[in-house]
């Protein structure tokens, strides 16, 4: 079996451990739900700066939507996976599974 031929491409935006975790977390939410930034940060155990950098990359790819709003006087930021982000994550997990199958199937 050719090793390179049928292997699926892995989305480079998602294929970085930190961003993969961000996307996996947001994918758990309902389709029309958003998560508050501090909760996402705690859940991922990242620094705010680090998380912001990754969110910006994901936003540039059109995978997440960032909404800045106010609750009373406190500014709140909500993050959600876009439809495109959800599809990309689906494709990514499918590709990973395919990789696993290929690895297991070829002897």
């Amino acid at each position: 079996m050719t090793a390179a031929g049928g292997l699926p491409e892995l989305d480079p935006v998602i294929h970085a451990q930190a961003r993969l975790r961000v996307v996996a977390t947001l994918n758990t939410l309902g389709e029309r739900d958003e998560m508050a930034f501090p909760s996402l940060r705690d859940l991922l155990d990242m620094t705010a700066g680090n998380l912001s950098v990754h969110l910006t990359k994901l936003e540039e790819a059109g995978y997440v939507r960032i909404t800045k709003t106010h609750k009373g006087r406190t500014p709140v930021t909500y993050v959600a996976l876009t439809r495109r982000g959800r599809l990309a994550f689906d494709d990514y997990t499918k590709a990973i599974r395919a990789l696993l199958d290929t690895a297991g199937g070829s002897s």
Partner: peptide, 14 residues
């Protein structure tokens, strides 16, 4: 963000 690990670990991570 380091490269993600192998497929098996990636699925576990997810």
């Amino acid at each position: 963000g380091d490269r993600a690990p192998g497929p098996e670990e990636t699925l576990k991570l997810i």
